[in-house]
Amino acid sequence: MTDRQTRKMPTNGSADLPLETREAPVNSIDAEKRTVEVVWTAGAAVPRVDPWTGDRYVEELVVSDKAIKLDRLNNGGPVLDSHFRFGINSQIAVVERAWIEGGKGLAKIRFPKEGLDEEIDRIFSKIADGIITRLSCGYRRLKIEVDKSKDPKVWRVVEWEPFEISFVSVPADPAAKVRADEVPTSACEFRTIGAPSGPAARARMRLRAAAAGLVD
Rank of each mutant, 00 (worst) to 15 (best):
70 L>S: 09
74 N>C: 06
68 I>S: 07
123 I>D: 04
125 S>W: 00
122 R>Q: 14
116 L>G: 05
139 Y>N: 04
60 E>L: 13
93 A>T: 07
116 L>W: 04
84 F>H: 14
49 V>Q: 14
97 R>S: 12
69 K>C: 10
71 D>I: 06
113 K>N: 08
115 G>R: 07
119 E>H: 13
45 A>W: 07
89 N>G: 13
29 I>K: 00
54 G>E: 09
84 F>S: 11
112 P>S: 03
83 H>S: 09
30 D>T: 03
117 D>V: 03
46 V>E: 12
109 I>D: 02
53 T>W: 06
108 K>R: 14
116 L>I: 09
121 D>W: 11
125 S>T: 11
123 I>V: 15
100 I>F: 05
118 E>N: 10
124 F>A: 09
64 S>I: 05
80 L>G: 02
90 S>L: 12
112 P>C: 09
92 I>H: 08
131 I>G: 00
42 A>H: 10
45 A>N: 01
59 E>R: 12
79 V>K: 07
58 V>N: 13
44 A>H: 13
60 E>R: 15
85 R>I: 13
126 K>V: 06
130 G>Y: 08
53 T>Q: 04
124 F>V: 07
112 P>K: 03
29 I>E: 00
67 A>C: 08
91 Q>D: 02
126 K>H: 13
103 G>Q: 12
41 T>H: 09
34 R>W: 03
77 G>M: 11
56 R>C: 00
69 K>D: 15
40 W>P: 00
51 P>T: 09
116 L>S: 11
111 F>A: 02
93 A>C: 13
46 V>M: 14
36 V>E: 00
63 V>T: 10
52 W>R: 06
114 E>G: 06
31 A>N: 05
109 I>E: 06
118 E>W: 05
67 A>N: 08
102 G>A: 10
124 F>T: 08
41 T>E: 06
51 P>S: 11
127 I>A: 00
